[in-house]
């Protein structure tokens, strides 16, 4: 395969033709921040936090969608780039609740990390802020759209599973938000609570309800585990705190890995030290159900009882 050599921050790096500047930088060990970039579903180019300076190019191109070319010179932390990133962060903060102290994602939030990196303490801009009601309309996922930075990764990962696409961008401009059809709470939609969207959300807009208040992100030791309920082989993490398994979270939403609710609940039952009772939607309302019901095992268990009992 043909390759190209470029210079990033004075460092020469050779990559296969077609590689993005972002990936080339990663190969050279140079970090470029990203929000909307998803290696599984690339080329969205919306958040613009990954802009870099390339002499000869108009403006500051987004490194996630710019192809590395022979002889290209890239600066990833030039004054113009730093100004742009800081300003974008300030713009995001201007419309973001500053409740990091109680946020479930504290310590595991890209917005927080990048503000730290660029010394952005807050936003100098005053004005309109969203005040969407908190969506905790279902037992599994809490959506706080005030924290959403509209990177769209949840939308794209949801659409990757055939027949899902439960959420999409809705409305326009400053009023853009991620919404299920008719902008209902998630609990009233066809969402199956697989948690793919939670696995990719870079901020605190999507969090696990069943993990709420149980620990800080840095207290958890994440132990990977493969679900064996079906042959998809989905990856989950066991979240271990003080030696106890507190909850199960979806790990990586790869293609062909649907990450279903049933799998996650099954793993919770199997591994959690103190599993919470599952809930399912019956006649439009969420009700507590037996584990057998939640895992679809009632029929099997009945049959087993009959066969083994007599």
């Amino acid at each position: 395969m043909a390759s190209v050599t470029l210079t990033i921050n004075g460092k020469k790096v050779t990559v296969p033709r077609g590689t993005t500047v972002l990936d080339a930088a990663a190969q050279a060990g140079i970090f470029i921040p990203t929000f909307c970039h998803d290696p599984e579903i690339p080329r969205f180019g919306a958040c613009r936090i990954c802009v870099v300076e390339i002499p000869g190019m108009r403006n500051l191109p987004a490194s996630c969608v710019t192809e590395a070319t022979e002889g290209m010179v890239v600066e990833t932390e030039s004054p113009a780039v730093v100004e742009a990133r800081s300003t974008i962060l300030e713009l995001l903060l201007a419309n973001h609740p500053m409740d990091c102290l109680t946020c479930e994602k504290n310590g595991d939030c890209r917005l927080q990390d990048y503000c730290f990196r660029y010394g952005v303490k807050g936003s100098g801009f005053e004005g309109r802020q969203h005040s969407y009601p908190l969506d905790d309309s279902n037992p599994y996922i809490v959506r706080d759209l005030n924290k959403c930075i509209l990177c769209g990764r949840c939308v794209r990962t949801c659409a990757q599973v055939e027949g899902r696409a439960v959420i999409d961008f809705a409305y326009r401009g400053f009023d853009t938000k991620i919404a299920p059809p008719m902008d209902t709470p998630l609990g009233e939609s066809d969402c199956v609570y697989c948690g793919r969207c939670l696995a990719v959300c870079p901020v605190g807009a999507l969090t696990y309800k069943r993990m709420a208040g149980k620990g800080r992100s840095w207290e958890y030791d994440k132990k990977p585990v493969t679900c064996t309920f079906c042959d998809s082989g989905c990856q989950f993490n066991l979240n271990v705190k003080d030696g106890k398994i507190v909850g199960v979270t979806a790990a990586s939403p790869g293609p062909g890995r649907p990450l279903c609710l049933k799998g996650r609940l099954g793993l919770e039952l199997l591994y959690c030290d103190d599993p919470q009772a599952p809930e399912l939607k019956k006649d439009g309302e969420f009700v507590k159900v037996s584990w057998a019901d939640a895992l679809g095992l009632e029929g099997v268990l009945d049959k087993m009882k009959k066969l083994e009992g007599k």
Binding site: A159, R164, A165, V166, I167, D168, F169, A170, Y171, R172, A179, P180, P181, M182, D183, S189
Partner: peptide
């Protein structure tokens, strides 16, 4: 109306969420 958008989504084989996204754009 909602029902009309639902029928359209069904007929076109397009997720309802996308139809709603297009309509509100």
């Amino acid at each position: 109306p909602k029902e009309v958008m639902q029928q359209i989504s069904g007929g076109m084989g397009i997720p309802f969420s996308k139809t709603f996204g297009v309509v509100t754009f």
